[in-house]
Design a protein around this nucleic acid. Structure first.
Lengths: 203, 203
DNA sequence: TTGAGATGTACTTCAAACGACACTTTAAAA
DNA sequence: TTTTAAAGTGTCGTTTGAAGTACATCTCAA
């Protein structure tokens, strides 16, 4: 979203340590957030289960634009030191009316979210839990990681519980799959980082 | 979507028998559809699994607006005699630029779809299959049904296989739950219709 | 009338959740 | 700094929900 990125220069900015909560829906006014640096996870605020992971350069809280109630159901927690910009949703609406590219950008974000959700639901029907977890790890490292000679390395920002939530599995199964992949030399990980080995990269 | 409904008067209209397929993504031009009468189910076109049920007065194929590829993955099948109106997605885009209320309406539809998907995913995590099926039946009858003295009656438009897809369960489990609910006098159904008994209406 | 699809029921199987516990890391308190 | 508690990780058995298999109706278009 380049338009959003440019806009961000003009906005209120906030610097947050790791593990800080951002109450998407509980502010005096609902806001849309733009993640300038770092990473956050979006939780279901009633069950405290992780629903998404958002990478720097992306927006979150966008649901509050047309459904305040839905936005109130989610909260964000920083997974590492992060910088966010935010704008109140009614101001954002005004801006979107003026700048079509902005509105279309948000439209795309909504569409993408639908696509991801449907994909996840479909996977639940057609893939077993081990595959879902392995697929998730590969996708996560590819999205969040950096390309090295023989491997792709990403910061290990998620707990096994988070991964279990994101793949609709249990913490123990996640651990089991990760350990197995490690034994098979397909991935490696420690508390800091997680890496996938390139020669093993299929798909 | 009142704006859409008014617009519909001006559009191409098509009358379809029960069981007819509408290729959302395979037309020469992608279109948005407005269901004027009847009901359709939206399928995942690769797996032929039912993803949604759309009731008269609602739109479908709206994904093609900002993601043609995603729309190509779905197809619709009429569940009963239906009337649809449709407009090519690029024409719809033009119209939406002119009429803000239309664009905002589509935004709402997207948001609603996200909400439903997230709800479904959440249910998968927190409800067992029997509960999901029962909840679905109650929601379906309430949405599609007509209020009678002691019961709410809806046309029985979905096969057990459809319901299984919609609740991420198996055909046999659906049958099992339905039979049990019938034995318990909480619901009643035959090939034509399905009804829930009001005194039993909780929630 | 006939055959394909839908429904109903029972039994078997198995993936994956769950419970239990030891060990490790992290972060805050003393 | 050291201590301590909380959270996260690693590995087990055990249990069980629900899918799968199998087959007998039933329904309804062609």
């Amino acid at each position: 979203m380049p338009a959003m990125m440019k806009m961000c220069e003009l906005l209120e900015m906030e610097h947050l340590d790791k593990g800080k909560e951002i109450a998407i829906g509980n502010r005096d006014k609902k806001s849309i957030f733009f993640l300038k640096k770092g990473a956050v996870k979006i939780l279901n605020s009633t069950h405290n289960t992780t629903k998404y992971v958002v990478k720097k350069g992306n927006i979150f809280g966008e649901l509050s634009l047309y459904d305040e109630q839905a936005a109130a159901m989610e909260k964000a927690i920083t997974l590492e030191e992060s910088i966010i910009c935010y704008i109140q949703s009614d101001m954002m609406e005004e801006l979107m009316e003026k700048h079509k590219s902005l509105k279309n950008g948000v439209f795309k974000v909504y569409g993408l979210r639908i696509k991801k959700l449907e994909r996840r639901l479909e996977d639940l029907l057609y893939k077993d839990s081990k595959t879902r977890i392995a697929d998730f790890i590969y996708a996560y490292v590819k999205e969040f990681g950096e390309d090295k000679l023989d491997r792709i390395e990403a910061k290990n920002l998620l707990s096994h519980k988070d991964i279990a939530n994101l793949t609709n599995t249990s913490r123990q199964t996640v651990n089991n799959v990760l350990s197995t992949l490690r034994k098979e030399k397909r991935i490696d990980y420690n508390t800091r980082e997680i890496a996938i080995f390139k020669p093993m990269l299929e798909e």
